[in-house]
């Protein structure tokens, strides 16, 4: 099979960047990949919803926050479970919550102008964070788990290894969703609905139910991601907002519904952030670089599409 020249070029650029980073500061590569894993794990469920239900869920990060609080109480207060175990009931409860949100709100806005949909999900985001604020105050909650500080040493270089969990989860989510969408009857129906809802209804697919199931799966996955997030990060009502923004940017950069593309884009952004953080005195620039890369990618893609 012929490989495109642009693919070879990109592979060469990435390989060169990896070698340079390894020669400069190997830990930058490790932390870049780990950060990419977290971004991808959070963004993939949003890509699923955008690709099939065609709605930008601005409450995405807040759903992660809700899941993290739920995991905190299941893990710490109610059942005394480890977050890795708690993620199972949390995912199930979040999936049910997702179904409820879809039926009560999203469903009614699907045929409305996109601006209305944005306002709706923005409203949900505000509601979730304010309810969390009222219920738990703005004080942050954090678990103290010994295994999150596990480290490894290769040669002279020592680094934390726990965050590779995010990488593993991101890859599992991407591969799992790809298999679900391409190999199962429900997944193929979801792809069909995402590509052509009218065509899907004509062949007997219940479009509304499919939207509901996909939204519910995405929110259930946020249950897993939120539980994992809790293992190492402090949670507070506003913790989800930045992740909504970054997830949306990643999904836009990867292209609508491109789940595997989210992995690549997360890797590019995670590495670039880690590189900036690795330069002494320039750590504050990492967010600027993050968004500059996204803007550049979208501009290049728009330019290419205009040329076609």
């Amino acid at each position: 099979m012929a490989v495109k020249r642009s693919t070879i070029l990109w592979a060469a650029v990435v390989a060169a960047a990896v070698v340079l980073i390894l020669l400069w500061k190997p830990t930058v590569l490790v932390y870049g990949v780990q950060r990419a894993g977290l971004y991808a794990a959070v963004a993939i469920p949003m890509a699923l919803v955008l690709g099939i239900v065609h709605i930008v869920n601005l409450a995405h990060g807040e759903l992660m926050m809700v899941a993290a609080y739920l995991a905190y109480f299941v893990a710490n207060r109610l059942l005394g479970l480890d977050p890795f175990v708690a993620m199972v009931p949390v995912a199930l409860v979040m999936a049910a919550f997702g179904w409820l949100i879809y039926k009560a709100t999203i469903k009614h806005a699907l045929k409305a102008p996109e601006l209305n949909q944005l306002i709706l999900t923005f409203g949900l985001a505000i509601a979730f964070s304010q309810i969390a604020n009222l219920a738990f105050t703005s004080q942050s909650f954090k678990l103290s788990l010994s295994y999150v500080s596990a480290s490894a040493t290769i040669g002279d270089v020592s680094f934390g290894v726990f965050d590779f969990v995010y990488v593993a989860v991101a890859v599992l989510l991407a591969v799992g969703l790809r298999l679900f969408l391409q190999r199962t009857r429900m997944g193929k129906a979801a792809l069909a609905v995402g590509q052509n809802p009218r065509g899907a209804a004509i062949v007997g697919i219940n479009v509304d139910r499919t939207y509901g199931i996909i939204f519910s799966i995405a929110v259930g996955l946020m249950g897993i991601v939120g539980s994992l997030f809790l293992t190492k990060q402090a949670i507070f009502p506003g913790v989800g907002g930045p992740y909504t923004m970054k997830s949306f940017c990643l999904v836009a950069m990867a292209g609508v519904g491109n789940i595997v593309g989210v992995l690549y884009c997360s890797l590019a952004l995670g590495l670039s952030e880690a590189v900036i953080n690795g330069i002494r005195g320039y750590a504050g620039w990492s967010n600027i670089v993050f968004f500059a890369i996204i803007i550049a990618t979208i501009l290049v893609r728009s330019y290419r599409e205009r040329k076609r």
């Binding site: 193929k188 792809l191 069909a192 590509q195 052509n196 009218r198 065509g199 899907a200 004509i202």
Partner: peptide, 9 residues
């Protein structure tokens, strides 16, 4: 009339 196929499948 418009066929309504699934273009990416």
């Amino acid at each position: 009339q418009e066929r309504e196929l699934f273009p990416a499948m």
